[in-house]
Nucleic acid binder design. Structure first.
Lengths: 304, 304
DNA sequence: CCACGGATGAAACTTACTTTCACCAGGCGT
DNA sequence: ACGCCTGGTGAAAGTAAGTTTCATCCGTGG
């Protein structure tokens, strides 16, 4: 008893396994048998019941408990949990993911999934990191006070534009999206001071969008550009520039990463606007949610 | 096609937590209370005894056991250990970010951005983790060999459906998307063996989509469901079920996280299909890229 | 209104964990 | 050599944790 008592003081936060193997020689023979089992396969040990482990170590449960105390645990369940945690941590990180890289021709689907998800998640994170909250704030303010909001985007970015439009609409802001250039131009011509025009273009070189944004600007509307390239042409016609941070240059993994990044920015703006008037936004959201209720079918099933 | 045994079954290698939150709506109220406790702090739950947890969830031990079974565990000890492992693997939760939580009323924009981006990125990562490559593979194969591919989705999921359609179209697959239920139904009625129908619904309860998918199935098409909830009604009419892992349950941060997750899955499938025939896909992509070139304006500037 | 089925918790029950205690083996003083 | 302590050990008793059963409750649909 005296021997193990002194050890109990050491609180071992890091490597429990290491800790155990360190004091292995100071343990009694029967406890050593237990310790060796534990050290050699922590994950397996974590799965065993105390009786099981005792049998495997050719000893009694009592000894296992003594072992637990010897290494500074309260009891067996605690040891089990620590072991499980330890074992989980040991798993090496998923092999070298190709950052922003191409997908090798021979890749299997699991690899493809890992690569894509990694890049997609990165795009979202990095976009958020480099977003300037000050600019966002100004844009949010402009949108909040706008008489009307026009959103432009072509192709894949049109998708995002449309999403933004819907979101704003759902919280009661007057927002429009135009899938067609001519309609957009017409609308832009009707904007004025106090209105907001938002142009979305990943490359920042989509002439249609630039043109429309320019039109809006000359009419006195505040113009916002959302693009991946801070020095692209679209930024010339924008009062506020928001950038995404998708690295993907190739078309390989679709333009999905950039789309996700754009959607994230849009979401931030949306929540920012909604936060300005919680009550009103919430009310509007609840109303719209209710509206689609009738198109929902019975709840999720219970059992398997 | 093995229609009896549904593909996807009990695959949850990625995240147990994620798995649980997906199952959440399909649990009974009392079990949901337990689930919420577990999801909100897995590490703490792992430390608790079953009686403790039951008390905290204001329910009985019996319910906790039922919960364990519902999420596919043998019993409470097993759950505990899995939770401990899970919690350990989890990287230090970035300071005060409310995981899947609400955005505090007083939050400034920088906080909002951080929270949103964090949740969005998480949704993408966790979705990838829990995606079953085997099911993906089968879906990819079905799509690759399909005579025709119909994609259905309403509201926000409609965007994703449309995106998928565009992607497949761009690599030369014959794919359709219908924004309108009636057109979709008509189209579904014309499907047959060898065709593929894909239904996208975050909640898995959108009656329109379910209906159309069912129609497609009775016509002999292979049906695929993409939803966040593995036990939702849409899975009843699907041969293949793919799930996303967005935790957000509230409308607050928009349904953006779920949308991103869906897009990621779509991207994976797309790349998977494209990888099946690199040459052909690449050629098609290059052709389409060239087509929009004329709508691009001069390159990015070099310096300021 | 009742029958029904699922959800639920109390209590019985089982298993796992912990403590107690007697025993044994080896060291040590007489 | 003989007791006599001392630490190591497992059997068994005891306690707590986990699991099952079952009666009750509640909402649903006939």
């Amino acid at each position: 008893m005296a021997k193990s008592a002194k050890i109990s003081a050491s609180h071992e936060p890091g490597g429990l396994i290491v800790h155990i193997s360190g004091l292995l020689p100071s343990l009694s023979p029967a406890e050593q048998r237990v310790a060796r089992l534990v050290v050699s396969d922590p994950a397996a040990a974590a799965r065993r019941t105390i009786t099981d482990l005792a049998t495997a170590a050719e000893t009694s449960e009592a000894t296992v408990i003594r072992f637990c105390r010897s290494v500074g645990m309260d009891g067996y369940p605690q040891l089990r949990i620590r072991l499980a945690a330890e074992a989980a941590r040991r798993i090496e990180p998923p092999d070298a993911r190709v950052v922003g890289g191409d997908i090798p021709p021979g890749a299997d689907l699991a690899q493809i999934i890992a690569t894509i998800a990694f890049n997609d998640a990165r795009a979202v994170e990095e976009t958020a990191e480099q977003l300037d909250p000050a600019v966002c704030e100004q844009v949010v303010e402009a949108i909040s006070g706008a008489g009307r909001i026009d959103i432009y985007g072509a192709g894949a970015s049109g998708f995002v534009a449309s999403d933004f439009q819907q979101k704003l609409h759902r919280i009661g802001r007057i927002a429009f999206y135009f899938p067609d250039v001519h309609t957009a131009l017409t609308s832009a011509a009707l904007l004025g001071r106090g209105d907001v025009a938002i142009g979305i273009s990943h490359t920042g070189t989509t002439s249609d969008v630039i043109e429309v944004l320019e039109q809006a600007r000359t009419r006195g509307a505040a113009t916002v550009a959302l693009t991946n390239f801070p020095r692209s042409p679209i930024t010339d016609v924008a009062d506020f520039v928001l950038t995404t941070a998708a690295r993907e240059t190739t078309y390989r993994s679709g333009a999905t990463a950039s789309r996700l990044a754009q959607l994230t920015v849009v979401d931030c703006l949306f929540v920012g606007v909604a936060a300005r008037n919680r009550a009103r936004a919430r009310k509007a959201l609840e109303a719209t949610a209710e509206a689609v209720q009738s198109h929902r079918v019975g709840a999720n099933r219970r059992r398997a």
